[in-house]
C-alpha cells in the first residue's frame, strides 16, 4: 500500500487526484477529532472539509520526509482554533456546559446512550481545552506519544506525562459524576 507521505508528495507535484485516497484514509478520524470537541455533526463536517481544502491549497508546505499524519493533525488543530476565534462572541456567551451535554444525547447513536458513556463524555467536556485535546489525540485518534509530541511541539516524555495527568484529571471528574 502506497504510504500517506508518498501520496501527499504526488499531490504536491500536481497529481491532485491522489487527494481522494488521502480523504478516504483520514476523513473519519479527522471528523471525529472535531466531533469530540464541538459535539455538532454538521459543524464537524464543515471543519473536516476545511482541513482537506487547506491541504489542497497549502500542499506545497508539506515537507519531504515529514509525517503526513502529524501534518494533517496540525492543520486540524489550526482549523479548530480558527473556528473558535471566529465564533468567539457566540461560544463565550453561551452556557456551553449545558449545550454540550444535551448535544451529546442528540448527536450520538443509541448504543452510546448508556449512562457510563454519557458520564465519561460529560467529564471530558468539563476538562480544559488543552487537556481535552491531549486525551482526544491519544485515546480517540490512537496517536503514539511520538506523534502527539510532534503535533504539539513537545518532547515525547512530556507528551507521556501530559496524557497521564489528563487521564488522571478525567478520572477525578468522572468519579464526581458517578
Amino acid at each position: 500500500m502506497i504510504s500517506d507521505e508518498a501520496l501527499m508528495m504526488k499531490v504536491r507535484s500536481g497529481d491532485t487526484g491522489k487527494m481522494s485516497l488521502l480523504f478516504e484514509r483520514f476523513n473519519i478520524p479527522i471528523y471525529n477529532f472535531f466531533l469530540k470537541f464541538i459535539g455538532d455533526k454538521e459543524i464537524s463536517q464543515d471543519l473536516t472539509q476545511n482541513v482537506f481544502y487547506r491541504i489542497l491549497k497549502y500542499n506545497h508546505s508539506f515537507k519531504e520526509g515529514a509525517s503526513f499524519k502529524t501534518w494533517i493533525y496540525q492543520i486540524a488543530r489550526n482549523v479548530r482554533i480558527d473556528h473558535y476565534k471566529k465564533y468567539k462572541i457566540y461560544s463565550s456567551s453561551l452556557n456551553t456546559d449545558n449545550i454540550n451535554e444535551i448535544n451529546l444525547t442528540e448527536n450520538h447513536d443509541p448504543i452510546e446512550k448508556s449512562e457510563e458513556i454519557l458520564l465519561i463524555q460529560k467529564a471530558l467536556r468539563k476538562m480544559p481545552e488543552d487537556k481535552k485535546e491531549i486525551i482526544v489525540l491519544s485515546q480517540f485518534q490512537e496517536l503514539r506519544y511520538k506523534e502527539i509530541a510532534e503535533i504539539l511541539n513537545i518532547t515525547e516524555n512530556t507528551a507521556r506525562v501530559k496524557v497521564h495527568r489528563a487521564i488522571k484529571e478525567l478520572s477525578v471528574l468522572y468519579k464526581m459524576l458517578v
Binding site: 455533526k41 472539509q49 481544502y53 452510546e112 457510563e116 465519561i120 486525551i135 478520572s171
Partner: peptide
C-alpha cells in the same frame, strides 16, 4: 485500577461516521 476504569469507558465511546454529504462536498471541491 483507576486508569483501567477510565480507559475502559473511553474505549466504549465509538467512532462516528460522517454523512455522505462530506464526501459529496469533497468530490465537488475536487
Amino acid at each position: 485500577n483507576e486508569m483501567q476504569v477510565v480507559f475502559g469507558e473511553l474505549n466504549k465511546v465509538s467512532i462516528q461516521k460522517p454523512d455522505m454529504q462530506l464526501k459529496e462536498n469533497f468530490q465537488k471541491m475536487m
